[in-house]
Lab assay of single mutants.
Amino acid sequence: LRQRHVACLARSERGLGFSIAGGKGSTPYRAGDAGIFVSRIAEGGAAHRAGTLQVGDRVLSINGVDVTEARHDHAVSLLTAASPTIALLLEREAGGP
């Protein structure tokens, strides 16, 4: 079961505080899956403080732009754009009992 949710992050002077992996033109985060995933969350960064991202979340869109088939460098450029806030649509595998 997959759950979707939106995370809104305000960029700090240190950026957004998370890294992505995967996407076309880069090493897959999961074998056989060209999706883009949250690969790291920086301690004390914007994403960590927001508490809405988890490592392993699939990134579906960035500020309304679909990145499900995107190249890695395109997703990075969307994240590093000048916008002071970033809205992410994420998909998470629902774990637990």
Results as ranks from 00 to 15, higher is better:
residue 5 H to P: 01
residue 44 G to I: 04
residue 37 F to P: 00
residue 78 L to M: 11
residue 88 L to T: 00
residue 21 A to T: 14
residue 6 V to F: 12
residue 28 P to C: 11
residue 31 A to M: 14
residue 38 V to H: 03
residue 1 L to V: 14
residue 29 Y to A: 06
residue 70 A to F: 07
residue 61 S to I: 05
residue 9 L to E: 04
residue 42 A to S: 15
residue 38 V to F: 02
residue 23 G to F: 00
residue 17 G to V: 01
residue 91 E to T: 03
residue 89 L to H: 12
residue 76 V to P: 01
residue 71 R to D: 12
residue 75 A to I: 04
residue 62 I to Y: 02
residue 7 A to N: 02
residue 31 A to R: 12
residue 5 H to Q: 11
residue 92 R to Q: 03
residue 64 G to D: 10
residue 85 T to A: 08
residue 87 A to C: 15
residue 13 E to R: 09
residue 55 V to T: 07
residue 7 A to C: 11
residue 65 V to M: 08
residue 21 A to C: 12
residue 50 A to K: 07
residue 47 A to G: 08
residue 84 P to T: 10
residue 42 A to Y: 13
residue 48 H to N: 09
residue 71 R to N: 14
residue 91 E to H: 04
residue 50 A to R: 06
residue 39 S to N: 12
residue 54 Q to V: 07
residue 17 G to W: 04
residue 90 L to F: 05
residue 80 T to C: 11
residue 40 R to K: 14
residue 30 R to Q: 14
residue 87 A to K: 15
residue 17 G to D: 07
residue 37 F to L: 01
residue 97 P to E: 14
residue 53 L to S: 00
residue 37 F to V: 02
residue 72 H to W: 07
residue 1 L to Y: 10
residue 22 G to E: 03
residue 8 C to T: 15
residue 31 A to W: 13
residue 78 L to H: 03
residue 85 T to W: 08
residue 72 H to I: 14
residue 80 T to Y: 12
residue 74 H to Q: 14
residue 74 H to D: 15
residue 10 A to W: 07
residue 93 E to C: 08
residue 82 A to D: 15
residue 83 S to C: 10
residue 36 I to Q: 00
residue 25 G to H: 06
residue 92 R to I: 02
residue 40 R to W: 13
residue 70 A to C: 12
residue 25 G to S: 05
residue 29 Y to T: 04
residue 49 R to K: 15
residue 84 P to M: 06
residue 41 I to G: 03
residue 45 G to I: 08
residue 79 L to M: 14
residue 23 G to I: 02
residue 45 G to Q: 08
residue 37 F to R: 03
residue 21 A to Q: 13
residue 61 S to K: 15
residue 26 S to D: 11
residue 68 T to N: 06
residue 73 D to K: 08
residue 64 G to A: 05
residue 16 L to T: 05
residue 49 R to G: 10
residue 72 H to F: 10
residue 86 I to L: 11
residue 60 L to N: 01
residue 2 R to D: 05
residue 47 A to H: 05
residue 50 A to P: 06
residue 16 L to I: 09
residue 33 D to G: 07
residue 41 I to L: 08
residue 20 I to F: 03
residue 15 G to C: 06
residue 86 I to A: 08
residue 58 R to H: 08
residue 37 F to N: 00
residue 66 D to I: 04
residue 33 D to N: 10
residue 66 D to C: 06
residue 51 G to S: 07
residue 30 R to W: 07
residue 24 K to N: 09
residue 75 A to P: 02
residue 86 I to P: 02
residue 36 I to M: 04
residue 45 G to Y: 05
residue 68 T to A: 07
residue 41 I to R: 01
residue 28 P to T: 08
residue 83 S to N: 14
residue 46 A to K: 07
residue 57 D to Y: 01
residue 58 R to G: 02
residue 78 L to C: 05
residue 74 H to E: 14
residue 15 G to A: 06
residue 96 G to D: 13
residue 87 A to H: 15
residue 58 R to I: 00
residue 61 S to Y: 08
residue 92 R to Y: 00
residue 2 R to I: 10
residue 65 V to H: 14
residue 14 R to I: 09
residue 75 A to H: 03
residue 28 P to Y: 09
residue 37 F to A: 02
residue 75 A to M: 02
residue 33 D to K: 11
residue 91 E to K: 01
residue 57 D to S: 01
residue 69 E to W: 06
residue 92 R to G: 03
residue 21 A to P: 00
residue 12 S to H: 14
residue 76 V to R: 11
residue 89 L to A: 09
residue 84 P to N: 13
residue 15 G to W: 05
residue 63 N to S: 04
residue 51 G to K: 11
residue 32 G to D: 08
residue 85 T to K: 10
residue 10 A to H: 13
residue 18 F to G: 01
residue 12 S to G: 15
residue 56 G to Q: 01
residue 4 R to A: 05
residue 18 F to C: 04
residue 62 I to V: 08
residue 78 L to D: 00
residue 38 V to S: 02
residue 54 Q to I: 06
residue 36 I to L: 10
residue 44 G to F: 07
residue 65 V to A: 08
residue 20 I to R: 01
residue 22 G to V: 01
residue 28 P to R: 07
residue 58 R to Y: 00
residue 21 A to N: 06
residue 48 H to Q: 15
residue 44 G to C: 09
residue 38 V to D: 04
residue 6 V to W: 13
residue 23 G to P: 02
residue 85 T to S: 12
residue 95 G to K: 12
residue 15 G to Y: 04
residue 62 I to M: 05
residue 71 R to C: 11
residue 80 T to I: 08
residue 23 G to H: 01
residue 8 C to V: 14
residue 89 L to D: 09
residue 8 C to R: 14
residue 89 L to P: 01
residue 35 G to C: 05
residue 60 L to K: 03
residue 29 Y to N: 05
residue 75 A to Y: 04
residue 17 G to S: 08
residue 6 V to H: 08
residue 5 H to C: 10
residue 70 A to T: 10
residue 71 R to M: 09
residue 9 L to C: 06
residue 53 L to C: 04
residue 48 H to L: 15
residue 44 G to Y: 07
residue 16 L to R: 02
residue 77 S to E: 14
residue 71 R to I: 06
residue 19 S to P: 13
residue 61 S to A: 14
residue 60 L to T: 04
residue 34 A to C: 09
residue 83 S to W: 07
residue 49 R to E: 11
residue 96 G to K: 12
residue 94 A to G: 14
residue 41 I to H: 00
residue 9 L to V: 15
residue 96 G to T: 12
residue 73 D to C: 09
residue 33 D to V: 10
residue 53 L to V: 15
residue 90 L to V: 14
residue 57 D to H: 03
residue 30 R to E: 08
residue 60 L to M: 11
residue 47 A to T: 06
residue 64 G to F: 03
residue 25 G to T: 04
residue 56 G to C: 04
residue 7 A to E: 06
residue 79 L to Q: 02
residue 18 F to A: 03
residue 56 G to R: 01
residue 96 G to I: 12
residue 55 V to A: 07
residue 56 G to A: 04
residue 6 V to R: 09
residue 24 K to I: 12
residue 74 H to A: 12
residue 77 S to W: 09
residue 2 R to E: 05
residue 64 G to H: 05
residue 26 S to M: 06
residue 93 E to Q: 10
residue 58 R to K: 15
residue 25 G to R: 04
residue 61 S to M: 14
residue 4 R to D: 02
residue 47 A to F: 04
residue 75 A to R: 01
residue 25 G to E: 10
residue 90 L to A: 04
residue 9 L to P: 02
residue 39 S to T: 08
residue 51 G to T: 06
residue 97 P to D: 12
residue 84 P to I: 03
residue 74 H to M: 14
residue 45 G to S: 13
residue 13 E to V: 07
residue 32 G to V: 04
residue 49 R to D: 13
residue 83 S to I: 11
residue 63 N to G: 07
residue 65 V to F: 09
residue 93 E to R: 07
residue 5 H to D: 05
residue 12 S to L: 08
residue 33 D to M: 10
residue 2 R to W: 07
residue 89 L to G: 13
residue 32 G to E: 12
residue 24 K to Y: 11
residue 18 F to S: 01
residue 40 R to H: 15
residue 21 A to K: 11
residue 16 L to H: 08
residue 79 L to F: 05
residue 71 R to L: 07
residue 39 S to K: 08
residue 22 G to T: 00
residue 29 Y to Q: 05
residue 16 L to A: 07
residue 49 R to Q: 14
residue 77 S to H: 15
residue 67 V to W: 00
residue 92 R to E: 03
residue 69 E to Q: 12
residue 8 C to Q: 15
residue 73 D to L: 05
residue 64 G to I: 01
residue 66 D to K: 04
residue 60 L to W: 02
residue 83 S to Y: 10
residue 45 G to L: 08
residue 72 H to Q: 12
residue 10 A to C: 10
residue 14 R to W: 10
residue 40 R to M: 13
residue 10 A to N: 13
residue 41 I to P: 01
residue 40 R to C: 11
residue 62 I to G: 00
residue 42 A to Q: 13
residue 28 P to V: 06
residue 92 R to T: 04
residue 68 T to G: 05
residue 36 I to S: 00
residue 34 A to K: 11
residue 55 V to N: 03
residue 18 F to V: 07
residue 33 D to R: 08
residue 71 R to W: 11
residue 1 L to P: 05
residue 78 L to F: 05
residue 25 G to K: 03
residue 7 A to Q: 04
residue 33 D to I: 08
residue 31 A to K: 15
residue 13 E to Q: 11
residue 44 G to P: 06
residue 86 I to D: 01
residue 17 G to C: 06
residue 72 H to D: 03
residue 97 P to I: 10
residue 37 F to D: 03
residue 47 A to P: 07
residue 95 G to T: 13
residue 26 S to N: 12
residue 2 R to M: 08
residue 90 L to D: 04
residue 60 L to F: 02
residue 35 G to H: 05
residue 58 R to T: 02
residue 54 Q to G: 05
residue 83 S to F: 08
residue 64 G to E: 07
residue 35 G to R: 06
residue 66 D to F: 01
residue 52 T to Q: 15
residue 15 G to H: 05
residue 53 L to H: 03
residue 81 A to W: 06
residue 96 G to C: 12
residue 23 G to M: 01
residue 35 G to Y: 06
residue 83 S to T: 12
residue 17 G to E: 06
residue 39 S to R: 04
residue 35 G to A: 06
residue 2 R to A: 08
residue 24 K to P: 03
residue 24 K to C: 06
residue 29 Y to L: 04
residue 84 P to D: 12
residue 83 S to P: 09
